[in-house]
Design a binder for these strands. Structure first.
Ligand SMILES: [Mn+2]
Ligand SMILES: [Mn+2]
Ligand SMILES: [Zn+2]
Ligand SMILES: [Zn+2]
Lengths: 133, 133
DNA sequence: AAACCAATGCAATAAAGTTGCACCTAACTA
DNA sequence: TAGTTAGGTGCAACTTTATTGCATTGGTTT
């Protein structure tokens, strides 16, 4: 199940397992605050450092959606967090959910001379299907 | 010069003129902190509220580049801040500058059913031409 | 068993963003 | 013109989010 830690060469610990499973169950991009409120018996800084470790090991990617807090979502298998591995996101301004639009890859753009890209943060926002009455 | 305020139906005030001219001179996306440090005789909250007013009146747009602080940049003439009016941005992780890539418009994407887009925040990051030695 | 090292929890702190309130100023009214 | 009003501004306090220092824990290695 969570042999993801073997693959990513990372020690399996209680907090890491819980945070990983939590993200895996939800399949959405979640904020630290949100995760913390559900995994209330874990400490905030432990979750924070766990997420940071996950980012370093390319287990999760971050999304800056303008909501004021960083969102975290599990990477797809084989993701290297290069722009070509990444995708658009959608932030709903009503329910504040952030979705990974896995079907929408980041397009390759031609940058001005001398610019070298290493990351991408693509966020569309508006109303999601649940909130669009 | 700054008849922009007439166009946007907004009172011309000392702080607004200074902030507008400052953004206009720099032609980059700047953070509140950065602006504040240069316009040091102005109060932070006055600049903050001015920027907020500018956003409301579509004089500036915001960029969430993952740097930890919101960046503000002047809109192009006729901009309505719809996704179709907006463009990609580039954040340099070395000099922390954020550029408006005016030549790169936001592509129109086909969203899942029920999703309605109203905003876009497209940020590529890496090294800019100055920092790419 | 002792030493070791990373992970964790707790508490403090930093950084960014935001707000309440008093004062000022410039436009409007009488 | 003098009085009134509304919005703009500055100051200070505060909220929220992110981050760090440090002591403790717990499993692994000698
Ligand atoms: Mn995603
Ligand atoms: Mn821009
Ligand atoms: Zn929604
Ligand atoms: Zn640079």
């Amino acid at each position: 199940m969570t042999d993801i830690f073997k693959i990513k060469e990372l020690a399996s610990t209680p907090v890491r397992v819980l945070v990983y499973e939590y993200l895996n169950e939800h399949q959405k991009a979640l904020s630290l605050k949100y995760i913390e409120s559900d995994l209330y018996d874990l400490d905030r800084s432990s979750i924070f450092r766990t997420l940071k470790t996950f980012v370093d090991h390319k287990i999760v990617h971050t999304i800056h959606d303008g909501s004021g807090s960083v969102k975290y979502a599990l990477c797809q298998e084989g993701c290297n967090c290069d722009p070509s591995d990444l995708h658009f996101h959608f932030y709903c301004t009503t329910c504040e959910a952030t979705y990974c639009l896995l079907d929408l890859p980041v397009p390759s753009v031609s940058l001005p001379t001398g610019f070298v890209i290493s990351q991408a943060n693509m966020v569309l926002s508006g109303l999601c299907n649940n909130c669009n009455s």
